[in-house]
Amino acid sequence: MIPEEIVRSPSWYESSARNRIAGVLDADTFHEILGPAERVMSPHLELFDLPPAFDDGVIVGRGQLDGKPVAIIAQEGQFMGGTFAEVSGAKIVGLLRAVTAAAGTPDGVSAVLLLLDTGGVRLQEANAGELAVSETVRALLGVRAAGIPVVALVGGRAGAFGGGGIVTACCSHVVISEQGRISVTGPEVIETNKGAEEFDSRDRALVWRVTGGRSRVLLGGADSYVKGDVASFRAAAARSRNAAPPFTLETMAAEQERLEKRLSSYGDCRDTPEIWARAGLADPASVPDIDDDAFLALLSEREIKHDAR
């Protein structure tokens, strides 16, 4: 028997990108652009003897959230690690540019929802993927400069790594669950390059303490923490759409201050419990162990809020 709460609201982590979209948007409002039947696929995977996907692992389109139009992008972390590549990246970039072009017109949207689930750049298409990340950053900031918030939703299997970590931090607002992970260089790559002494990637608790959702939201790398079900992500997306900082010089100056302060306050810490202790948390070692309700209560007590992203 499947528990009732799982039937009502499936896990974000376990869901496919298509199911996440269906769960985030109002029912039957999703209009996919360049859907699978268009067969817009990677021209490069064949060179590596790898099977392609009809959507190249990225689903883009329009829909509604609480009756208001939104643009939506979802990466499928199970296909090639949800990577940025020539086609998958161009779909993201094309949508973001179209959103900017439509800003202020009747075709405009109220927000862009970016459902990240990515290991970063697809190495089989490394140069195209790297450029796709850079183009995504520029197009995304164009959307924000046009006054439209971009909300990142992070809680998938592949996390938001590499260029995906950079793209996440370019968004107006970041929503994350306990299972969400954000980082640039993954623990395995650090271990390969610098040794297990620097970062033991098999120490899962350590990996989560460094990259996981709770640490990110406590430190300011994410803005909203949600339970890991699809309905919670939907509710947070709707809420945060109205609370996103504009992309301005003032916001960047505030972010500069926020990030400098973090470096001077915690730059000599070795592990996150050290940071939480210095930040005045009553029981820093318990942060990974308490349940989501207790963690949410802890967050609301501390009122971790900033308008600098």
Binding site: G35, P36, A37, F54, F79
Partner: peptide
């Protein structure tokens, strides 16, 4: 038209 599944290891997509 419909699509099911994902091209993950040990998996397939069907359009």
């Amino acid at each position: 038209q419909a699509i099911v599944g994902v091209v993950a290891s040990g998996n397939l997509e069907v359009l």
